[in-house]
Design a protein around this nucleic acid. Structure first.
Lengths: 189, 189
DNA sequence: ACCTGAACACCGTTCAAGT
DNA sequence: ACCTGAACACCGTTCAAGT
């Protein structure tokens, strides 16, 4: 982050999210970040009350750029089945997204990160439920299928992180997604 | 942990896993743990080379007591379908298990925790694949369904952590599991 | 063989002092 | 208005000294 002007809170937030993606929230250090941005650590406390506020700013930055913006793009796709395929397929094109997701999700019990995670989750579940409603399912079934879909989505990242061999190639992921979405689009019994 | 005898490494590992479940790996402090166990922090370094070794010991303790022991119990169930239902149902009876799971999984990139997580994941996938083989699926399909099942399993914890409302009641969880397992047991097309 | 207590480095936080 | 530099507390790690 090279800037001739003065540092904005957004600069700190962006650099923090970068650091979080790489080494996790626990390893986020005000001192390291300050020297990386070329200022003293005392300067940080002009912009933020404490380290927690920096984590919050980073998480809010993620909520806006990673989630809200993504949904606006996806909503443009007319066919709900195609929208689901794209939504879940897209997520695997950006491994960095999975890293941030994992780093933040690990801190749901954190009082500042927790509410943001919950907002994003509710928003994604609602978005996915809407797609299943458009596919013709009744509301309870649609919500249900959205839960399964989103669980499988998060779990897929978890499996991949936990075992690099399991979902390594694009072919495996595509087959996985195809089978999952076929199952989920099948009529309710 | 009240003991009249001297502290064993296992005592440290167990107390550490307890602390990790409550506040995460990041908040695990040698100093706090030592004073909780009633010794000075210098004493810790007689049993372990460093803090990382303590985390490793805690994770190994989890691998043995939480995973290996559980599989031995489950393997005793004859019917593979019933075994799967019990396996996934059981996991929700112990919320503490999910907390530890999340705390450890958040550190897959950690050089000492990572290999342990991967071992556990491989073992669980193999265990689940075997159940689907017994149900009559071909090996590739069985492995595939195991991946979906295990993803949905991990994701279910993630969803629950992320949104307490989503999978809160036993009824919702049971319905979720029933629908998921019905889908997964359906013949391949 | 196992533990203590003092020492040092790293980092979060505060604050008086600078521009 | 924004930043520095020194100060202090907390915690990881080392180590000489105790039993």
């Amino acid at each position: 982050v090279a800037r001739t002007e003065q540092l904005q809170p957004a600069d700190w937030a962006q650099a923090a999210l970068e650091a979080i993606a790489e080494r996790g929230i626990g390893a986020l250090s005000v001192e390291r970040l300050a020297s990386r941005l070329g200022v003293s650590k005392g300067s940080f406390y002009w912009h933020f009350p404490d380290r927690a506020a920096l984590v919050e700013a980073a998480a809010l930055y993620w909520e806006e750029t990673g989630t809200a913006a993504g949904q606006r793009v996806m909503q443009a796709i007319e066919d709900p089945g195609e929208r689901l395929r794209r939504l879940f397929g897209e997520a695997f094109a950006y491994p960095r997204a999975g890293q941030i997701e994992a780093a933040l999700t690990a801190h749901v019990n954190d009082p500042v990160v927790g509410p943001i995670i919950r907002r994003v989750t509710e928003s994604r579940l609602a978005f996915t439920t809407r797609a299943f409603l458009e596919l013709g399912f009744e509301r309870p079934t649609a919500r249900h299928r959205a839960l399964i879909a989103y669980s499988a989505y998060l779990g897929m990242f978890a499996v991949r992180r936990a075992d690099g061999r399991a979902l390594a190639t694009r072919r495996t992921v595509n087959a996985y997604l195809a089978e999952l979405l076929t199952m989920l689009a099948a009529p309710a019994d």
